[in-house]
Structures are given as structure tokens and as C-alpha cells.
């Protein structure tokens, strides 16, 4: 029996359950963090009624959403309408399988882990677009059109930054990338200015693109409440909307994990001692907090401003960092 439990399929099953629980819990409690954060940034207390400091609020929200009727409005493309939220959630869950949470805590330590995350990440656009299109709603279709141009625009600088990182690290294995950043915090990729003096800028570009790709404010063009009601999610009720909402947080989680792994040394400790899962979680949640922070301090940009930022600033700068780091690699 013990021998059976230590086999690969059982390990994968344990990771599957673990990742789903992790994403579910985080999606629930990041909503609480978001609402608390929003409250504090706006000088009000946020949720306080349900449980101590509103800690049971996510459970109340979940019960409310689950008890509502799942309406498929007349005239929508029912099959696509139902599939879209799942298509948004599944890639995020699958991508988390290659994230190394600790020195030996990764579901699958494959050599093309980084590529896997971006391959699956590209399905998100498809999900929002199908959701918006199948809703047969003007707001939803406008939102879907926006999402495509936004994601196409921001995928380019993201991939350029990632190519720079692959060139510097020489691998797409995420655990290997973390292992290369061993030592104190100045060995982390974000501070390795001798490899490329623009490394902090690269990190900043990655973070901005991550915000844009997860459709977070100030780039939340998919769900611009003041202009498009709820964008692509307008027609969704009950858990259809709930799954979209959870998927947004799952994607934030994934993006912050990836930023941690690529730039902030993953599970390495900042003092060179005691590396472990704890450090990974601290760094990741710091980034998650930064995402919330940005959302409630910056107003939503205009759509043209958003595209201009990508095409006129981020893409040239990321191309420049790519060329610069390759030149430095060639010279030294």
C-alpha cells in the first residue's frame, strides 16, 4: 500500500487536489483582500459584518452566487456560453502545475515549463472572446473586441521580456531558473544589473504586461463597469460569473508566481539561508498586494492610451533590452 502511494500517478493526483484547493482558497480570500484593500485605500473599513473583520465574507459570497439561478438568456449561443468560463479557468489551473513552489515542490518539473505557461495563457483571450461573442450583447461584443486588441498588444512585450530572460538564463525550466538565482538577494534576476543594466526596467515591463493580460485596473478594458456595464460578463449570472471572477484571481496568482520565479528568485531566501516555500509565498503575496494597490490608486486608462503605451513605449523598450542583453552576452 505504501509503495502504491509513492508512485507518480498518486503524486500527481495529490498535486491536482492541492492546486485546485490552493486556487479556490486564494480566489475566495483574494476577493476579501481586494475589498479590504479597496476600503482602506478609500478610507473606509471594507467588509466587517460577516465574521471577525469580515473574514467569512467570501463564504457568504460563494453561497449567494451558488444559490442563484444560472440563466442562459434567450438567443445566446448556449454551448459556447457555457463553455467560456471553464475555458478561462482551466488553463490557469493547468499552468500552475509547472510553477516550482519550493525546491522539490512542483507538480511537473518539465523542461519547457515557461513555454507551457504562455501556450496555455493564450487560451484566455479565446475564452473572453467566446464569452463576449456568444452573449449576443453589444457591450459584451465591444468588450471582446477590446480584449483581443489589448491582449495582442501586450503579449508582444511580455514575450520579448521572456525571450530576454530565456537568453540570460539559457533554460525554460522554471526550477532551473530559480536555482540560478541562489544566494543573497542581489543574485535575483531583477537586481542582476551586470548581466543587463536594464533588468529592473524589464521586471517593470513584465509586471505592467501581467496587469494588462489579467485585465486588471488600470487596464480593465474587458470589464470597464462605467462604460460597458460588466463587459464580456454582462449576461452571466450565478456561478457562470463566479467562475470568470475566480479565473481572474487564478490568473493574477499565476502571473505573480511567474514574476516571482523569473525575477525575484522564487523560493530562494533573500539572505542566502533557509530557502523554502515560505519565501515563495511571501514574495508572491507581496506582488499580489501590489496588484491590488495599483488597482485602487490608478484610474482606468483610455483605450487609446493603453494601446499607445504598449506599441510606443513598452515594445521599443523591451526590444532594446533584448538587443542590449544579447550584445552584453556576446561581448563578455
Amino acid at each position: 500500500m505504501l509503495k502504491l502511494l509513492s508512485t507518480e500517478p498518486v503524486r500527481l493526483l495529490a498535486f491536482l487536489v492541492g492546486i485546485m484547493a490552493f486556487v479556490g482558497l486564494n480566489a475566495a480570500y483574494l476577493v476579501w483582500v481586494e475589498r479590504k484593500g479597496a476600503g482602506r485605500f478609500q478610507r473606509r473599513p471594507g467588509p466587517t459584518e460577516v465574521g471577525y473583520a469580515g473574514l467569512l465574507q467570501p463564504i457568504a459570497d460563494a453561497i449567494k452566487l451558488l444559490s442563484k439561478q444560472l440563466i442562459v438568456p434567450q438567443g445566446v449561443d448556449a454551448a459556447l456560453f457555457r463553455v467560456a468560463p471553464l475555458l478561462m479557468m482551466a488553463p490557469a489551473l493547468m499552468s500552475l502545475a509547472v510553477i516550482p513552489f519550493g525546491p522539490s515542490l512542483a507538480a511537473r518539473n518539465i523542461n519547457v515549463g515557461l513555454l507551457l505557461i504562455f501556450a496555455l495563457g493564450s487560451i484566455n483571450v479565446m475564452a473572453i472572446m467566446l464569452g463576449g461573442w456568444s452573449s449576443r450583447n453589444k457591450y459584451a461584443i465591444m468588450s471582446a473586441a477590446r480584449v483581443v486588441s489589448q491582449n495582442v498588444a501586450y503579449e508582444i512585450p511580455t514575450l520579448l521580456v521572456v525571450i530576454t530572460m530565456i537568453m540570460i538564463t539559457g533554460t525554460m525550466n522554471l526550477n532551473e531558473i530559480v536555482r540560478q538565482q541562489a544566494g543573497a538577494f542581489w543574485h535575483w534576476n531583477v537586481f542582476r544589473v551586470w548581466v543587463n543594466p536594464l533588468m529592473p526596467v524589464t521586471f517593470l515591463i513584465f509586471f505592467i504586461c501581467m496587469l494588462a493580460e489579467t485585465n486588471r485596473a488600470p487596464f480593465d478594458m474587458a470589464e470597464a463597469e462605467s462604460e460597458l456595464v460588466a463587459g464580456a460578463y454582462t449576461e452571466y449570472s450565478s456561478m457562470g460569473f463566479g467562475v470568470f471572477f475566480m479565473a481572474e484571481y487564478a490568473n493574477i496568482l499565476l502571473g505573480c508566481s511567474l514574476a516571482t520565479v523569473l525575477f525575484l528568485g522564487g523560493w530562494q531566501s533573500p539572505f542566502g539561508i533557509l530557502p523554502g516555500v515560505l519565501w515563495f509565498l511571501i514574495k508572491m503575496y507581496f506582488l499580489v498586494f501590489a496588484v491590488v494597490w495599483v488597482r485602487w490608486t490608478f484610474p482606468r486608462t483610455q483605450f487609446y492610451g493603453l494601446l499607445n503605451l504598449s506599441w510606443k513605449l513598452l515594445i521599443p523598450v523591451s526590444l532594446f533590452t533584448l538587443i542590449l542583453s544579447s550584445a552584453i552576452m556576446k561581448l563578455y
Binding site: 501556450a119 493564450s122 473586441a145 495582442v152
Partner: peptide
């Protein structure tokens, strides 16, 4: 295959 056909080609066609 995923990145190019699902993520790029199909998205472009749907658009």
C-alpha cells in the same frame, strides 16, 4: 501548436 494555432490563429479567425 497550442500557442500558435489556438492562441494566435483561432483568435484571429474569431476576431
Amino acid at each position: 501548436e497550442l500557442l500558435i494555432y489556438v492562441g494566435a490563429v483561432c483568435v484571429t479567425v474569431v476576431f
